[in-house]
Amino acid sequence: MSGILDTVNLRTQMVGQNRLELLLFGLETDQIYGINVFKVREVLQCPRLTEVPRQTTSIKGMAHIRGETIPVLDLSEAIGRTAVPKDEQQRCFLIVAEYNKRTLAFLVRKVDRILNTHWDQIMAPPAEIGVENYLTAVFEYESRLIEILDVEQILADLYPMSTKVSEEVATSDVKTKAREYHVLCVDDSSVARNQMQRSLEDLGVKVTTCNNGKIAWDMLAGFADKGIDVTEMFLMMISDIEMPEMDGYTLAAMVREDPRMDKMHIVLHSSLSGGFNVSMVKKVGADGFLAKFNPDDLAGVVIERIQKLERTR
């Protein structure tokens, strides 16, 4: 265990295309779950929590960690399982993570190990299980299925967020121009896709969505094989980074390497945070990075692209 606690922060600096490292953890059953190490700030034994008055959600309290007060989310309760009893909390662990510009700690029963793998080994969950769940991907390891939770969906349910673009950003002139353009959005999280689609359609642009990088690449390559100029078809591509089968870094790099589409404008859009993304955006040839999720910020990068094209006409 001490090895995991000592190396999590170091491993978050790892750079690799289509690679990921999963921190494996458990809740109240024998099922093993995984979280991308890039999102993990640290792992520690759960301290005594400060209770939240009139607490009515799976937020169990607050932890004071390294001078910062961080809300603690009981991950079991958040996904509809049995909550950790109060007298057992200090025998559990906190995974301190950053999602969508928010720092919070996940209360889990155990932390297992860090597993090095590739995104092409991570599969989308079977379509037959439907969309009303918190599962975003699965991974087979040692004859067991490791589940990767859709934390963005969990947080969206806990902290509902408006997708409406403000009138100051989406002016009538902007909406008139936006109707002429088409944006490709790529994300494995259904809540993230819906957020982007609603915000951009509120702006006025047409939106096509893909569930992961491989689906997006196959679609773009298919269009190009038919002689269709995808850089004329799409104003830009906005892609998540973490996705099963093919991540956003690899998707961006492959688009840049294909002369039929290498001029496509690419923005990587992720709940991953930190300077790491700035260097990776440059490395794979993307045009920018946008942290999730703010509808005005999302609309802003689209408007900026539209205005730049309008000036060159």
Rank of each mutant, 00 (worst) to 15 (best):
L158H: 09
Y159N: 13
Y159C: 10
P160S: 12
P160T: 08
M161F: 04
S162Y: 01
S162E: 06
S162T: 04
T163Y: 06
K164L: 15
V165D: 04
V165L: 06
V165H: 00
V165C: 06
S166P: 08
S166N: 02
S166E: 03
S166C: 08
E167D: 12
E167H: 04
E167F: 02
E167W: 01
E168F: 12
E168G: 06
E168M: 12
V169G: 03
A170S: 14
A170T: 08
A170V: 14
A170P: 08
T171Q: 06
S172P: 06
V174C: 09
V174L: 13
V174K: 09
V174T: 11
V174R: 06
K175Y: 08
K175H: 10
K175I: 11
K175Q: 15
K175N: 07
T176H: 14
T176R: 15
A178W: 06
A178E: 05
R179K: 15
R179T: 10
R179I: 10
E180G: 07
E180W: 08
Y181R: 12
Y181I: 11
H182S: 10
V183Q: 02
V183K: 01
L184H: 07
L184P: 06
C185V: 12
C185I: 06
C185M: 08
V186K: 00
V186M: 02
V186F: 02
V186R: 00
D187M: 04
D187Y: 01
D187I: 04
D188R: 04
S189R: 01
S189I: 03
S190P: 08
S190R: 00
V191E: 03
V191C: 11
V191H: 05
A192E: 02
R193K: 09
N194Q: 09
N194K: 00
N194I: 06
N194T: 15
Q195S: 14
Q195P: 00
Q195L: 13
